[in-house]
Nucleic acid binder design. Structure first.
Lengths: 250, 250
DNA sequence: TACATGTATAAACGTTCATTCACATCGAGA
DNA sequence: TCTCGATGTGAATGAACGTTTATACATGTA
């Protein structure tokens, strides 16, 4: 499990920033989320903070610099959390893939707005700023490819199409895209609780790679309880009542 | 199977348009694909055709009207092809899901550029034009949800999380996103042939819904040859040797 | 009191954008 | 030959953009 406070606080954005800078980041995040970064003007951002356009340049060198702050922060955060989770989880490929999917779903759904901004707006960056974000994204993908390749080599995974690099990449990218897109129609407080959500996505991911059951995780999961696994007992109580009745959409 | 000529010709875009209009559509498609619609100027579009900006307005009422032409055409086309395929395929849910996935992969990968423009730029539309495209997209998704729900009701599918609307939607959207994102790192002439590609995606889709084997399709497919089916022998020659693009990660 | 610092302002800058419009060109039909 | 419709030109328009600049106003400190 993700140690709740660590990334949650950081995901508020603009740590170590002055108060006006943080307010500008927050306003920009809202506007970028609703309209897209390209369609959002400096005047809108500063206006939302009760400021005039010039004020932005006391805190950021440019509009792109502000976007970079938001985007790269989220990417570094995700990268860090994934690494931390993977170093604490052991060698079993099923465990490792499970951990990655759990983290991805939790981070993306929890910080839905910020994640969508990061994933949709990063191509608006240019030059070295873009290169840095792309490098992080590639690293994230390669890490999953390594897990899949290892699992396939051990006979634990059955990747559709074999273990060639192309097939492994298809599977890895599919799994990550799936998790990222969870934010598109699901949100905290929605019809599904976070553990339920994670369970579904873990199950789908394991199915995609054709994972053979290991400890207690059937490829066709029983509806029983999840695994005990990591220590942090944070799934004790449902943080929302969110009656998981069948109906609701997204 | 997709009757090759039908949609392929139509996907060239701008059917029934005058020659300059078609050239403008083609140039805009290229530019939108490379830079995004918002970042592409009317001057660039007309300049690419050896024209001046004003000339565009002899053929389209606005830049958005041109984008609409491109985007709605691709959506209607996909919708039509899916409907045609589904009406000719019988009632078996496995067959129906297989058909949808095959069509999606083929259309998106074959018309990679146009598909990416349609899927990435449609949010730039406004008002009724946007509403029309959104309606088509919803229809496409609902159609897959119906297939999954029917399959689950017949006990042929085992949707992760049960047969509630939310779970079915998660699975349906995941499958469609997966197919759409095939264009992000795969292309005709890439390391995988079209039938291979379709096979992988069909297999992953069936795994996601936990399909139980029916005619000859194991949930863990043997690596042997695919089903006979796919008629059009169109992947004969490799048109490019381009490298597989880096692909989206988290 | 004097000064430095952080922050905000109002106005303007230069650029770029989509769009408009009066006018030219040209092929086809009468 | 004349007209007409389709098409293209090239200049102009008004608006919007990101950004810069000179200036002002607090606040804390020496």
């Amino acid at each position: 499990m993700v140690s709740d406070t660590s990334w949650q606080a950081a995901s508020e954005g603009g740590v170590g920033r002055s108060d006006p800078a943080r307010r500008l980041l927050g306003a920009a995040d809202d506007l970028f989320y609703r309209q897209g970064a390209a369609a959002t003007t400096v005047r809108e951002i500063t206006g939302a903070c009760g400021l005039t356009p010039g004020a932005l340049y006391n805190h950021f060198t440019s509009k792109e610099d502000l976007l970079y702050d938001l985007v790269v922060g989220r990417h570094r955060l995700l990268d860090d959390v994934v690494v931390a989770e993977l170093t604490s989880v052991g060698d079993d490929p099923v465990d490792r893939l499970t951990a990655v999917v759990r983290v991805y779903v939790e981070v993306h759904v929890h910080a839905r707005q910020g994640s969508r901004v990061a994933n949709r707006e990063y191509p608006n960056l240019t030059g070295p700023r873009l290169a840095e974000v792309v490098a992080i994204r590639r690293r994230l993908r390669d890490r999953v490819m390594d897990i899949l390749a290892a699992g396939a080599a051990q006979g634990r995974f059955d990747i559709c199409g074999g273990t060639g690099r192309a097939s492994v990449m298809v599977a890895a990218a599919t799994i990550l895209d799936m998790c990222i897109h969870a934010t598109e129609w699901l949100h905290e407080g929605g019809p599904l609780s976070m553990p339920e959500l994670q369970e579904r996505y873990v199950a789908m991911a394991l199915r995609i790679v054709g994972a053979s059951p290991s400890d207690g995780l059937p490829a066709r999961p029983a509806s029983g309880p999840g695994r005990q696994a990591s220590g942090a007992g944070e799934s004790r109580r449902n943080r929302r009542t969110a009656a998981p009745a069948a109906g609701g959409t997204g």
